[in-house]
């Protein structure tokens, strides 16, 4: 028993560690930036009664130590690849703030963590919306209305393909390459008998649904705030995704032998 600290047994400390590392691993998997992961897990740990939390992050795993007085518990978790989900990150932020308002209430945190839901948008909403997004891109770049419609079609079908492949648990790299291939195949309809005068704009905006915006921005944010290895890891991931999409585009264009190639 340490002086100055309320009695927390080793079992209780292990329980706290399990909860905190679960929160940290979820944040890492669903795409929070490193500083947020470190801040949230140490705030949660302190709220649950720890002296401090030490954490070490690499892109695929997490090592976390809770300190209570002199006794420390360390644990490691592997982070699995998940689609980015800001809704879950937001729910975890809310849980941490609730835990700070009622400190030492581990039961409440555990129940709330078990009730986290991923809140996905329904397919009938997201597929036309992504089609419309890419069509809006092509309109902003100056495509004509025939090009607008072709972009809408290509991006919607691409989003359906992406969802279908993701739900079958293919690697994200394969999903991106194949989606880019399908999008380019459909978008090259605009060259068929001069259907649209602005074919290259249609081709470039119909694959924009594959822009890895979150990995790029997260990698910059991490690198600038001192998490160099996380920044490099996420940068590599984003670059690989971009390369795989270009591979899909090149494959489709080579197959169709489009003018300008």
């Amino acid at each position: 028993m340490q002086k100055g600290f309320p009695t927390i047994s080793k079992e209780e400390q292990t329980r706290i560690t399990t909860v905190v590392v679960r929160v940290a691993a979820m944040l890492l998997e669903y795409g929070a930036e490193s500083r947020l992961i470190e801040q949230l897990s140490s705030r949660l740990g302190v709220a649950l009664g720890c002296t401090s939390i030490e954490i070490s992050l690499i892109p695929s795993a997490i090592v976390l130590t809770t300190l209570i007085g002199d006794s420390s518990v360390t644990t490691t978790r592997r982070a699995h690849e998940q689609p980015i989900n800001m809704s879950i990150v937001h729910q975890i932020v809310t849980i941490c703030i609730a835990a700070e308002k009622n400190p030492r209430d581990i039961m409440m945190v555990e129940t709330k963590l078990a009730n986290i839901h991923s809140n996905p948008y329904p397919a009938w909403l997201i597929v036309p919306m992504i089609g419309l997004s890419c069509a809006a891109f092509s309109h902003l770049q100056g495509a004509d209305w025939a090009g607008f419609c072709i972009t809408f079609l290509a991006a919607s079908v691409g989003m359906m393909v992406r969802r279908a492949l993701s739900s079958r648990n293919y690697s994200l790299l394969i999903v991106f390459a194949f989606t880019a291939f399908v999008c380019t195949m459909i978008a090259s309809l605009s060259f068929y008998q001069g259907l649209s005068a602005t074919g290259s704009i249609v081709l470039s905006s119909s694959v924009l649904l594959l822009v890895p915006g979150f990995p790029y921005i997260n990698s910059m944010l991490d690198a600038f705030k001192g998490y160099i290895s996380m920044g490099w890891g996420r940068w590599t991931q984003a670059t690989l995704l971009t390369l795989m999409s270009s591979l899909g585009i090149m494959l489709a264009m080579g197959l169709l032998d489009i003018k300008g190639w």
Partner: peptide, 11 residues
């Protein structure tokens, strides 16, 4: 429109 659409992809 793209801002909302991509917001949906990132959920």
């Amino acid at each position: 429109i793209p801002a909302v659409g991509f917001g949906m992809i990132f959920n």
